[in-house]
Design a protein around this nucleic acid. Structure first.
Lengths: 359, 359
DNA sequence: CGTCAGGATGAATCCCCCG
DNA sequence: GCGGGGGATTCATCCTGAC
């Protein structure tokens, strides 16, 4: 089997033409079936550049399921018995993909949450910011002896076990491939994501297959890490971009590559978290250190003073007639006859929950 | 329908005995179908106290799917058209539940990741630490007008949009209910999780249904926040624990339940009303913030620019060549040598006339 | 050359009342 | 039920151009 090349064509046919049990790892980023109906405008009037490509359009969930089961069955055949498979998706499609994986006999090892440091906001204020995507990692069967480089993952995570939630930025800037001044592909994944997947589940010389190759992030990281790879992609324009990208790369010599871990230092704690967890009850009176001003805690973590509601910082600033105020040190609660700064509650919260570092 | 009580029995039968379209929110924590075949040993030899209750055993994915679709269909019937449903699960079951939700016509609004600050480590070093669970939030249909208290969520998160990943501790310590020295229920959820769900999607007086009530976390938080609730639980030992727990609770006072509201809750003011009352005189020049465009106020509250007259919004959009425009924040009047947004005039108008909230 | 303000942008199922 | 129109709504990051 010829390695380190892109096959142009349909991934099901291409996989069926490959030898059975021939690849060690499959990474698949299939269409998400986003079902976007309307144009979305940003508050300042700009238009969101949506994914509206034909390859993401399906007539129904049934049609999407049929497609999913077909490519997963082909993937099952080419995967070695001790290999494993990763898929990525969003709430639009990931439940269909996950159920299909289970139905085909794949054994789920983890679901991994890719938390985006910089997701697009929800412009209309109608839902929670959709700030993550989900990956599913499966062995070929319940009893398979899959590869997991536990210590490499632990080392990558400052000697703590790598968790199932990964904080990584989306692909922007110089890493984002352009063609003709605009993005070459609407859904290019960050190399750091593939780096972690390949480092966790393969060793040098393993064969990595990506049936939805796109601009070739999987191939690029595989080459970098000294893994062999095969990419399958239907659209010739993406094939050209991917080939040029990978040709221009040099593998690492011995090496390593920085994986973004996001902001370090102490985790940001919202005042609302203290209210939610019952450390401070709605209705509690907050005092400044000299009891000259008071405010009342509301159910959503905002506070109210003289009929005006806002954050602890905003209302503290208003009480002092100042432009800004650190509400954590400004406001206090009554405790044992004296006043305790709410910052002490934050310290206690961090200690109780073990949220030491951000990320 | 009798509220604020626990129904002992099977949740499907109990929901089918309830009136159709009678609840505003459903929170469901169904069995996870954990498929734990072997006893798991800790490194030091102790046995992990795993979920091995009969209620979590299913013979196959098909049996679990049939159960899931049955209770979800019953839930669909009792949910109001503009209500919403939350479910929680792990990778063992959440894909089955999510696919069933979509197949039954529920419309996914978000998948939410509950990131645990203190998850159980992976003792064997064979996988990533399973550090999260997944919630799925759905409206009853694609076109339903569900409730989302956007500004309350934003206030709870230090004035940033609440994201789809929530960092919360697991339920331990004093909050963890005990019976006879051991934990009363193997999967008790933290109150903070329910607090956020109920604060986001209900208002005081709404009816919240939990078909897998367990030790009654949903009921406890509903009572605290002044929401009505109904719990359904099959196991009498859990019913007793939940009832005692909720009976011992005091709700917040009415004022403490108040949360932040956005401008959509404010009374609508016609621009013409400001002209009528003399706050803005006909003939006044309106400017955009950077003085690139100007318009002239007419006697009827319309404005004119380049020979075209229309509302402040229409003429603002025309000036910008945009599809839409909020004229209140786009246009400004000269005042004291600087520019003041006409929105400030609207604030003054509301204050002067006492029209605070929308009717 | 550096700094700063302004603009662009990312897998998005993104409004709602009134006639 | 549908169409029109008022008017509510954004976070982190990177790039470009002005000075």
């Amino acid at each position: 089997m010829e390695l380190n090349r892109i096959i142009t064509g349909d991934c099901i046919a291409a996989m069926n033409a490959m030898p059975a049990k021939s690849v060690d790892l499959i990474f698949a980023d299939p269409p998400y079936n986003l079902q976007l109906h309307h144009n979305l405008l940003r508050p300042e009037g700009g238009k969101v550049d949506a994914v509206d490509d034909d390859w993401d359009k399906f007539d129904s969930f049934a049609a999407y399921d049929a497609f999913t089961r077909a490519w997963l069955a082909a993937a099952h055949r080419v995967l070695k018995d001790d290999g494993s498979i990763w898929t990525i998706g969003s709430y639009h499609n990931i439940f269909r993909v996950g159920a299909a994986l289970q139905d085909l006999g794949f054994w789920v090892l983890n679901d991994i949450v890719w938390r985006k440091t910089n997701p697009m906001p929800n412009f209309k204020g109608t839902r929670f910011t959709n700030a993550h995507e989900t990956l599913i990692w499966c062995a070929k069967s319940e009893t398979a002896r899959y590869r997991f480089n536990y210590h490499a993952m632990k080392a990558l995570n400052e000697d703590l076990q790598m968790r199932s939630d990964w904080l990584l930025p989306i692909c922007t800037g110089a890493e984002r491939l352009k063609s003709g001044g605009t993005k070459a592909h609407p859904t290019q994944k960050p190399e750091a994501l593939l780096y972690r997947v390949l480092l966790a589940c393969t060793e040098p010389g393993d064969v990595v297959l990506d049936p939805f190759f796109g601009t070739g992030t999987t191939g690029a990281v595989a080459k970098l890490l000294g893994r062999d790879w095969i990419g399958i992609e239907r659209e010739e324009k993406y094939v050209a971009v991917a080939q040029a990208r990978i040709d221009g790369l040099l593998p690492l010599s011995g090496g390593d590559m920085a994986v973004s871990e996001g902001a370090r230092g102490l985790a940001r704690v919202a005042f609302g978290a203290l209210v939610e967890t019952g450390m401070i009850r709605p209705g509690t009176t907050l005092w400044d250190a000299r009891r000259r001003h008071r405010a009342r805690v509301r159910a959503d973590g905002s506070v109210e003073r003289d009929g005006r509601a806002g954050s602890i910082h905003q209302i503290g600033a208003a009480a002092e007639g100042a432009a800004a105020c650190n509400g954590w040190t400004y406001w206090h609660v009554e405790e044992g006859g004296g006043l305790v700064a709410i910052d002490a509650k934050r310290v206690a919260y961090r200690a109780a929950t073990g949220v030491a570092s951000a990320g």
